[in-house]
Amino acid sequence: MFNKITNRSFGFNLLVVVGILAVLGLLFFSLLGIITKHGDTLTVPDVYKKNIQEATMILEKEGFSVDVRDSIYVDSLPGLAVWEQTPAKGSIVKVGRTIYLTINKVIPPMVQMPDLNGLTFRSAEMTLHSLRLNVGDTIYKPDFATNTVLQQLLNGKVVKPGREIPEGSNITLVLSSGTGNTENPAPDLIGLTFLEAKETLSASNLGLGTVLIDPSVTDTANAFVVKQTPPRRNSLNELNMVRAGETIDLWLSGNRPTKDSGGTPAPPAEPEQPE
């Protein structure tokens, strides 16, 4: 056979080669549409919020490939649910196109609790949202600085700045409602322990102002109130009136003060002022 080919002219052999290439080229281009599935398109289904297993089954059944490219955490979405798909639902794409999915994490990441005390409600809300935390309940309490944060709570308990908490947590904000309009007599805190005095102030919707402590005090919680400003009565023995949200300053000592028969405390020695 080789001899037959070599015995033929070069021109004839060239024509044979060209013919073979032409047939192969024609065959290739005729099959190209089938190989690439040219003209075969599908509409991308909607798998938003579906579990990753269910979403994969739906997409592969329709003729798509699936690739999980990223994960985030959204507290309103179940774990392993689809948050985003690319191409988007309703897109017209070729058969076999890869659909990239972003799914929701099962375990929320941890973030540090910010310090919201003293911020306005709007600033506190923006700070929480920037860390993917939510504003839960809002509780109003009388205080001078209207609509500012007095406390930050998680599950009913005070949460300190810097503590690690789950992303998506609901933070309850205790906000100032300003001072009240109704005046009441100032409570008599003389002789109470510091802890008792704070409880009395809280029950009266009053704030704790400046606290001056005698150097001899070793246990602040059980130290005694020996002076308060404003006092229960003024120099004319009239009741001093205060409004909810106002503050009372306290002086603490390790010795319980004595009161005269009229209930007036004996003048205490002034605690040393810090330098």
Rank of each mutant, 00 (worst) to 15 (best):
M1I: 06
I5T: 11
I5E: 03
T6Q: 13
N13Q: 11
L14N: 05
L14P: 01
V16K: 11
L21A: 13
G25E: 03
L26S: 13
S30M: 09
L31S: 10
T36P: 00
T36A: 06
G39R: 10
V47W: 02
K49L: 15
K50C: 01
R69P: 00
I72W: 04
V74D: 15
L80D: 15
L80K: 15
A81K: 04
V82G: 10
Q85T: 09
A88K: 12
I92R: 12
V93M: 07
R97I: 04
M110R: 15
Q112R: 15
D115W: 07
L116C: 11
G118D: 07
T120I: 03
F121Y: 12
S123H: 07
E125I: 02
E125A: 13
H129R: 14
H129M: 11
N134W: 03
Y140K: 13
F144C: 01
Q152T: 14
I165C: 07
G168Q: 10
I171V: 14
S176K: 06
D188S: 12
T200L: 08
T210Y: 07
P215H: 06
S216L: 05
T218I: 07
D219W: 01
T220R: 06
T220H: 00
F224C: 00
P230T: 14
P231V: 12
R232T: 15
S235W: 04
L236I: 09
R243H: 03
G245V: 01
L250W: 07
P257Y: 02
P257R: 02
T264K: 05
P268A: 07
P274L: 11
